Deep mutational scan, measured.
Amino acid sequence: NQASVVANQLIPINTALALVMMRSEVVTPVGIPAEDIPRLVSMQVNRAVPLGTTLMPDMVKGYA
């Protein structure tokens, strides 16, 4: 199964993503693939992302 990017902490709106904020986990539904974690670093989220939430492409500015 494909691992997705999951929030490792609460990520406030407009926060630039850092490695420590993300982990990979096999979840349903599938979100952003875990292999894209390096690409996500320094991109901003466009909403608050609670701990344990799967990151979806529409949550990250400039990802989709």
Rank of each mutant, 00 (worst) to 15 (best):
G62Q: 07
T53P: 01
R47M: 15
N8Q: 09
V49C: 05
I13N: 15
N1F: 15
M43I: 04
M59Q: 04
P57M: 06
A34G: 13
M43F: 09
V49D: 03
I32V: 07
V30M: 13
V60W: 00
V26Y: 10
V41G: 03
T15V: 07
I13G: 08
V5P: 01
A3R: 07
A3C: 14
G52C: 04
Q2N: 12
L10A: 13
V26F: 06
S24A: 14
R23N: 10
Y63F: 07
V5K: 00
V60T: 02
N8I: 07
G62I: 04
G62W: 07
Q9A: 12
A34Q: 05
Y63G: 03
V60E: 01
P29I: 05
R39M: 15
I32S: 02
P12R: 07
I37H: 01
P50S: 10
Q2H: 12
V60S: 01
P38R: 07
M59G: 03
I11C: 03
G52L: 04
A34L: 03
D58Y: 13
L19E: 09
L19C: 08
G52D: 09
M59R: 01
V45S: 05
V30Q: 10
L17H: 00
V6S: 00
V27C: 05
I13L: 08
N14W: 14
G62M: 08
M22D: 03
M43T: 04
G52K: 04
M21V: 03
Y63E: 03
G52R: 04
R23M: 06
M56S: 06
R47S: 11
P57L: 05
V27L: 05
A16E: 12
P29Q: 05
T15R: 06
A48Q: 14
L17F: 00
A18V: 13
Y63V: 04
V6M: 04
A7N: 00
N14M: 10
D58R: 06
N1T: 14
N46R: 10
I32H: 01
Q2E: 15
E35I: 07
E35M: 10
P33Y: 12
A48V: 14
E35V: 09
P33S: 13
R47P: 02
P12L: 08
V60Y: 00
A34D: 09
S4V: 02
G31K: 02
M43E: 04
K61W: 12
Y63M: 06
D36C: 12
P38I: 08
P29Y: 03
D36R: 07
Y63T: 03
S4W: 02
V26S: 10
Y63R: 04
I37L: 13
A64Q: 15
Q9G: 05
Y63S: 03
P29R: 04
T54V: 14
L51D: 13
I37T: 07
D36M: 11
N8E: 10
V20W: 15
P29V: 07
A3M: 15
V30R: 04
A18Y: 05
V27K: 08
L51Y: 13
V45R: 00
I37R: 07
P50V: 11
D58E: 13
Q44C: 14
V20N: 15
P57F: 06
L19M: 14
M22L: 14
N8D: 14
M22R: 00
V30L: 15
M43Q: 10
L17W: 02
S4M: 02
Q44I: 14
D36N: 13
E35R: 05
L55V: 11
N1V: 15
P33I: 15
A64H: 12
V6C: 04
A34H: 08
T53C: 07
A7M: 05
S42W: 06
V26D: 15
S42E: 12
L40M: 07
A34Y: 10
N14V: 03
P33G: 07
S42K: 11
L55D: 01
R23H: 05
P29G: 03
A34W: 07
G62E: 10
D36L: 14
A7D: 00
T28D: 15
N1W: 11
V49Q: 02
K61C: 14
Y63P: 03
S4P: 02
L19T: 12
L10N: 13
A18L: 14
N8M: 09
T15L: 04
M56V: 07
N14C: 15
M59L: 05
T28S: 13
D36I: 06
P29H: 04
N14K: 06
T28F: 10
V20A: 15
N8S: 13
R47L: 08
A34T: 07
M43D: 02
V41S: 03
V60C: 03
Q9C: 06
T54P: 06
N1G: 14
I11Y: 00
T28C: 12
M21A: 04
A48W: 08
G31D: 02
A64P: 15
V5L: 03
V26L: 11
I11H: 01
V27N: 03
L19G: 06
A18R: 09
N1P: 15
A64D: 09
T54Q: 03
S4C: 04
G31H: 02
M59I: 06
E35S: 12
L55S: 02
L55A: 02
A18T: 15
I13E: 13
L55H: 00
K61P: 09
P12G: 11
L19S: 14
I11E: 00
A3D: 09
P33A: 11
G31S: 02
N8K: 08
S24K: 09
P29N: 04
D58L: 10
V30F: 12
K61M: 12
Q44M: 15
V5T: 09
M43N: 04
N1A: 15
Q44E: 12
L51S: 14
V27E: 02
Q44A: 14
I32P: 02
G62H: 10
V6Q: 03
Q2G: 15
M59C: 05
G52E: 04
V41K: 05
P12C: 05
S4K: 01
R47G: 05
V20G: 10
Y63W: 12
Q9T: 13
M56L: 13
T53R: 12
N14R: 06
N8G: 06
N46Y: 07
T28K: 06
A18K: 11
A34R: 05
M59S: 07
D36V: 09
V26I: 13
V27M: 06
D36G: 04
P38M: 09
R39A: 08
L17A: 00
V49S: 02
R23P: 03
L17R: 00
L19W: 09
T15D: 03
T15G: 05
E25N: 06
V45H: 00
V20D: 13
A7S: 11
M59F: 13
A16T: 10
I37V: 06
V41Y: 05
T28Q: 10
P50T: 09
N46F: 06
S24D: 11
V41D: 03
I13Y: 11
R47C: 08
D36P: 00
Q44F: 10
S4E: 01
V45G: 02
V49T: 04
